[in-house]
Design a protein around this nucleic acid. Sequence first.
RNA 1: GCCGGGAUGGCGGAAUUGGUAGACGCACACGACUCAAAAUCGUGCGGAGUAAUCCAUGAGAGUUCAAUUCUCUCUCCCGGCACCA
Length: 729
Amino acid sequence: MHGYDPKEIEEKWQDHWQKSGIYEAKDFSDLPKYYLLIEFPYPSGDGLHVGHIRSYTAMDIISRKRRMEGFNVLYPIGWDAFGLPTENYALKTGKDPKVVTKENTDTFRRQIRSLGLSFDWSREINTTDPKYYKWTQWIFLKFLEKGLAYKAKIPINWCPKCKIGLANEEVVDGNCERCGAPVEQKEKEQWMLAITKYAERLDKDLDEVDYPDRVKIQQRNWIGRSEGVLIKFDDIEIFTTRPDTILGATFIVVAGKEDKFTGRFVTNPATKEKIPVWEAEYVMSDYGTGAIMGVPADDERDMEFAKKYKLPIVEDYQKAGFEDFGKKVTKYRLRDWVFSRQRYWGEPIPVIHCSKCGVAPVPEKDLPVELPKVEKYQPREDGESPLANIDEWVNVTCPKCGGKAKRETDVMPNWAGSSWYFLAYLFNKEGFASSASIENWKLQIENFRHFMPVDWYNGGMEHTVLHLLYSRFWNKFLYDLKLVPTSEPYKKRTSHGLILAENGEKMSKSKGNVVNPDTIVKQFGADTLRLYEMFMGPFEQAIAWSEDALVGPRRFLERVWRLKTKVAKGQTLDTDSQGLTLMHQTIKKVSDDIESMKFNTAVSSLMIYVNTLDKKNKISQEEFKTLILLLAPFAPHITEELWLLLGRKDSIHIQNWPTYDSKKLIKDEIILAVQINGKVKANVLVSRDQSEEEIKTMALALPEVNKWLKGKKPERVIVVPRKIISIVT
RNA sequence: GCCGGGAUGGCGGAAUUGGUAGACGCACACGACUCAAAAUCGUGCGGAGUAAUCCAUGAGAGUUCAAUUCUCUCUCCCGGCACCA
């Protein structure tokens, strides 16, 4: 007999699965569908992170269980490949980002394949593929058509040294991330998307979806719904959530750059008194009406301001009725989405500027507006995109009047492609490649109806506000155009915890503490790596990597491998009642734990099962078959090989998921603990059909119990069936 | 400051609606096998104590026959938002 060697079996099965196509979802199927989604990776030059594997394996386990339960499972993958690291790398090396992206996705694809994940590779997408961003641009044109995309002059983060606009993420403590120079605010015309028009629904519809509470709370905080009233103090309108405090309002503050008295007075409509109007820094110009009423007695900041400038303070005043003054409004903290970047590596915004016609959308038939080749990825002195240097690309004729016109040179932010990718997976190949038009989109609607919404979306907490909110917004917009079947894209959202370095720090290239999955696969095998990542700790919690702990799962798999020699050949060996109970308990435990993402305890229950089987001389086919079926989603290669060795011809991954018999879950005899005054003093073996009275008598007859009672009569005896016996003296 | 989540052996962690705290794994120790080592198997492994027994789930109180679990107060750690009226 040869020992367990993952090298001999893992690649073999990966190739086999790829050829047989057992993980491909069917576009038209009578089976119920199940759509599982992971956040598609940004293919960075660092290669796959062990953190990616945690999420992908978890969802792979659920995908595999669903397949075995008879669903038409869709578990797709692709590349969210536009972004700054690639552009910065291109800037440094002069390499074409397209080439860099190709290299990186090749590495990622190879690494992901080496893990035996059951992705449907036939639906692989890449946001930087012109066939893909053609549709991203098309959706943008729909926003433009409906008046939800507009241009506005807004302040942006500007690095005067690099002469470049920075995303908020690139500003570290007010300084440029790259050169360290202090960042300035500069007014610039930017494309905006009117996400605030959807604020109410984005807030309210959270009630309908199954997201963790902390995710809902974070989204709601970000949207920042607040109900209040607008009240006019003469010509100054203020916003407040506490109109009942109006009798205590002794001044008005409007947003300003410094604290100063304006010299004006207005009338408090409730008290009819003249109160001063001040300007102050602490009032925000872009929230509410940019003006507030100062009620020192009810607001700490107003009190501080009043004390500082010796403004009147009224401590005792009557509360007014909520609706006595002003008109009710709902305000949101959410801002419209700045959708322009003065960069190269993004989707060109498909509009043309004509001096006569103004902004003209690029006609559908001319999509995609492809990124031209450029010599230098360096942004220009004036902060415009490197695209602005390509005259032959910029200078075009106006699609409306045919006169001379110029292309928009801004590109979209990296959130654009990921705002609709869950739909891109559903396109059939021809539809995806065909011209971007409403007719071709509508040809996909049957697929959308079959697969949407996403049944289960797992991702990181870092995407809770932006990506999750943006993609919900795009989906709702498309829903309003009757282009998708559901108002919410994701039915259920869960999130995984980070994997940290051994010392508890974040893994990073600069710290040199990154774990390379290739090394682990080589040394331990993909099945061990998968099992380890599931076993290491609670899925939703951050956890430190431990090289030492990997041997545990590896030893477990070796034990499973050796167990096959104990399987009784030929006739079926009967399983004793203890063994039968454990088998059914294990089926229940593993099944339940997968659903609640308690993968660590699912693995430990499999370990208990294996340890028990290993103590026997012979085990039945049934026991072994159940074991490898339950293990198959976690360790797909070794179980496929063992399935073959059992003499089965078809894949283990398309077999039926084991079911348990609830009648077999309970043992005939169990040991109950006996407590005296809250402390365990003895144990008693009882059978399942004994009455409470019988159990009580047995417990009181125990020598250990009599020793403690010393002949006294107990005050109370509590029998909790199947749990405990508690004696109180 | 506000919101959310945590704290259990040497380590990662487990513990149903409150019911034998420490499952499972790592590390460690001893034993078996071996000329030896590795691998494997077996035993032990929260603390104190010869033992009976006592003490232990961040700290302190409370409810209960019984609290890691429920309530209150406090300390520390992590994540998010940050003058939002």
